[in-house]
Design a protein around this nucleic acid. Structure first.
Length: 747
DNA sequence: TCGCCAAGACTTTTT
DNA sequence: GTCTTGGCGA
């Protein structure tokens, strides 16, 4: 079939893409072409079924997924996509809430609070209620509030059984009051109010539901209750809902995601058509079999039989290291040898771990070996202090009621205004029934004539100065462009001088601000409101993942990332490290079977990222919080059929620091070097003697010099030389030329 | 009011 | 081991 819209689809994919009206549930295993199905389906509806783009809503979880989909669909259809609602759940709701603000307890220039702001506000609420922050940690109270919202429970609807629940309920109530006072919503509110709006106003529900002839959803397994309800409302008129997901890849339970929404969907729509995508285009069969043996032990799911036509492939290599240094050493050695053998590039590799803390040891090993690497997602651009500062200045201008932002920037840079003065102003503002921001502006505009002058006390003058500055921005914002406003704020407060102290970090900080300014330039036409909303909703992951993709394309370096961050990505060779009890599965998941099932899924996600080769690595002993911990192998390792695994045994424990020694005489990749400088050891080579490979992976061998070992990989070079990677019991990984290695094959 | 030091925390983090 | 937070002294 040469029809580009339907070309290159397997029968199940085709069935999904061309399915008729009604409810369609596509369960798509990893690497089964889920994105392809979704984009083709969209194109099919528009191009073949003549559905106008504005009658379609397609929701994703990330902006990146949304923009990718949009770009791909645009290349497939003739007509433009004008009017389509294609974006994240949160962006979609924000749009709806601004439009329907008349029915809501906030107005349409609300700001969106990120998790930092939310926590600040929870703390404030707890202080207001005189609740001891030591007894009830604000983070956990916040988590409980967030969970309630995701479950569509308001402050009045949460259970008040235990003392803790009582505390949560009271803080929740106050927290909501504060949000309204700040004219702000949090992430969860976007969904909460979105669902509430459609539930409580029938005509609004009809308005949207009748407009959207087709509803499409990506990553359906990650929806929470609010999102599920929202989707039901949106599809309540035409009842055409097409969802794609995979229960087995649901790894955000702790954020309210409930994979059982897949089961709920089947129950709510008994006539739904269920399509399984089981052909995997990514991994070898060995990898898929291992993945399946791990995931099949979970319940409440649709069993899937992933298959590949890529052949069995290499066995999985398991390596048990004595400690975390040796674990990192194994990873680095193996990668360096393969790169040295010129059969792999740094970008072919990824190292995945359960917790960010594990990256440190691995990074050190990479640095020591001079191997190029990069981390995904560890440093959050939007979490950076300087970025947050500037955003808060802007938010304050947009919405002077935003007390969280005001509080943050009032002493940036320090201007002699302290906690006492702020508290005085807040009290006075509260008494007058206005927001503290408005009081500040009043003070700035009329100075001593303001009723708040006396209330503030000693630093009233300084407070008024700052108020005047802010008032200047607020008065100007309608007249000047976003970028001019940006520049004006920075120069008025002397921000560059404040953060850039000419140290490396200082320069770095200023560069981040400049980066933010570049982003602002893109929004110069659209203005401040949209810029801020975009900052709140695009945040972090999208930008960082994009950067990471560019980086691994251009500079070619090994990717280090958490298992969570790995979702949706793929690499030729994957190392999963820390396969130990209490690491993976994590110790905190031990007393809850649901949590444990999620750890299993996390491992499953990791396994299925690998295209060609998977390494499972653990350490008997690792440093956590500066102390040594011993641990058992992860329970998940037992679930993989031993015939799929090449067991490496463990490194002789006599010299745990041997990697440092190895590096000085092994393959010479020990100098700090750019990727190109990672060279492999060059033997004084004799001409090739044989044309056929003598060794193959899995064979046990013995060498005079290195003792017993196991072949990891053998490759025949174009000159007929056989290059082998051998892992020796006592010497670790060696990269050798077969003709010179003088190895004896053991039975 | 600000900055420094010490005690305490410390999974994961699509929006 | 290292980052954050909060208390205290200048």
């Amino acid at each position: 079939m040469s029809d580009p819209l339907l070309a290159n689809l397997n029968p199940q994919q085709l069935q999904a893409v061309t399915a008729g009206d009604g409810q369609i549930l596509v369960l798509a295993g990893p690497g089964s072409g889920k994105t392809r199905v979704l984009t083709r389906r969209l194109a099919y509806l528009i191009d073949r079924m003549q559905v106008p783009a504005y009658e379609i809503v397609a929701v994703t979880f990330t902006n990146k997924a949304a923009s990718e989909m949009e770009n791909r669909v645009a290349t497939l259809v003739q007509s433009d996509l004008k009017g389509i609602w294609l974006g994240t759940f949160h962006a979609m709701c924000a749009r709806m809430l601004r439009f329907e603000a008349g029915y809501l307890p906030f107005n349409n220039n609300f700001v969106i609070f990120d998790s930092d702001d939310q926590e600040t506000l929870v703390k404030r609420a707890m202080r207001d209620l005189k609740i001891d922050e030591k007894l009830h940690r604000p983070v956990s109270v916040h988590a409980a509030i967030s969970a309630a919202k995701n479950d569509l429970k308001g402050p009045k609807e949460v259970t008040r059984g235990s003392y803790k629940e009582e505390v949560v309920a009271r803080v929740y109530e106050r927290y909501e009051q504060l949000l309204r006072l700040n004219n702000a919503v949090d992430f969860d509110d976007l969904l909460f109010w979105g669902a509430k709006l459609l539930r409580e106003h029938e005509f609004l529900r009809d308005k949207y539901a009748s407009r959207f002839r087709h509803v499409l959803v990506d990553e359906f397994q990650d929806t929470n209750m609010a999102q599920y309800e929202l989707l039901t409302y949106l599809s309540s008129y035409h009842k055409n809902i097409f969802v794609v997901g995979d229960e087995d890849q649901s790894i955000y339970r702790w954020r309210g995601a409930d994979y059982r929404n897949v089961l709920r969907f089947e129950k709510d729509f008994p006539d739904c058509q269920k399509i399984l995508l089981e052909q995997n285009y990514r991994s070898t069969q060995v990898i898929l079999d291992a993945a399946r043996s791990v995931i099949d032990r979970n319940h409440n799911r649709t069993p899937k039989h992933l298959f590949s036509d890529r052949g069995a492939g290499n066995k999985i290599v398991r390596y048990d290291a004595v400690d975390d240094n040796a674990e990192a050493g194994f990873v680095v050695d193996t990668i360096a040898a393969k790169i040295g053998a010129k059969n792999s590039l740094p970008r072919d590799f990824a190292v995945m771990y359960r917790t960010n803390a594990q990256s440190r040891v691995i990074e050190e090993a990479f640095m020591h070996a001079g191997l190029p690497y990069h981390l995904v997602g560890a440093q959050r651009f939007y979490g950076r202090r300087e970025i947050k500062d500037v955003i808060c200045f802007l938010r304050l201008v947009e919405n002077p009621s935003d007390e969280v932002s005001l509080q943050r920037v009032i002493s940036v840079p320090p201007r002699g205004i302290g906690e006492t003065s702020i508290a005085n102003l807040r009290d006075a503002a509260n008494n007058a029934g206005i927001s503290i921001g408005d009081a500040l502006l009043d003070l700035g505009r009329i100075g001593e004539a303001s009723p708040y002058w006396a209330a503030v006390g000693r630093s009233a003058g300084k407070m008024a100065d700052f108020g005047a500055t802010v008032a200047g921005w607020v008065d100007q914002k309608a007249q000047i462009s976003l970028v001019s406003l940006f520049d004006r704020i920075l120069s008025d407060v002397g921000y560059r001088e404040y953060i850039d102290d000419n140290t490396d970090e200082g320069v770095d900080r200023w560069e981040n601000v400049e980066e933010l300014r570049r982003l602002a330039e893109d929004f110069n036409e659209r203005g401040l409101t949209e810029f801020l909303q975009n900052l709140a909703l695009v945040s972090d992951q999208d930008t960082i993942k994009e950067e990471e993709e560019d980086r691994s394309r251009d500079n070619s370096s090994v990717t280090l990332l958490t298992l969570h961050a790995a979702k949706g990505l793929e690499y030729k060779q994957v190392f999963i490290v820390g396969l130990d009890e209490n690491v993976l599965p994590h110790s905190r998941s031990k007393d809850d079977p649901e949590e444990m099932a999620e750890e299993r899924r996390l491992f499953y996600v990791g396994i299925t990222r690998a295209k060609d080769q998977l390494y499972l690595v653990r350490a008997e002993r690792r440093r956590t919080f500066g102390e040594f911990d011993f641990s058992e192998p992860s329970r998940f390792l037992k679930d993989i059929d031993p015939s799929l695994i090449l067991n490496e045994g463990k490194r002789a424990s006599s010299r745990s620091s041997r990697y440092e020694q190895d590096l000085t005489w092994g393959p010479s990749y020990n100098q700090p070097a750019a990727p190109s400088k990672v060279r492999h050891i060059s033997f004084e080579s004799a001409p090739a003697s044989s044309k056929a490979a003598k060794y193959k992976a899995g064979q046990r061998v013995k060498s005079e010099k290195f003792g017993e070992g196991i072949i990891l990989e053998s490759k025949l070079e174009s000159d007929g030389e056989e290059i082998i990677d051998v892992h020796f019991k006592d010497y670790g990984l060696k990269h050798l030329m077969a003709s010179l290695a003088n190895l004896e094959i053991l039975q």
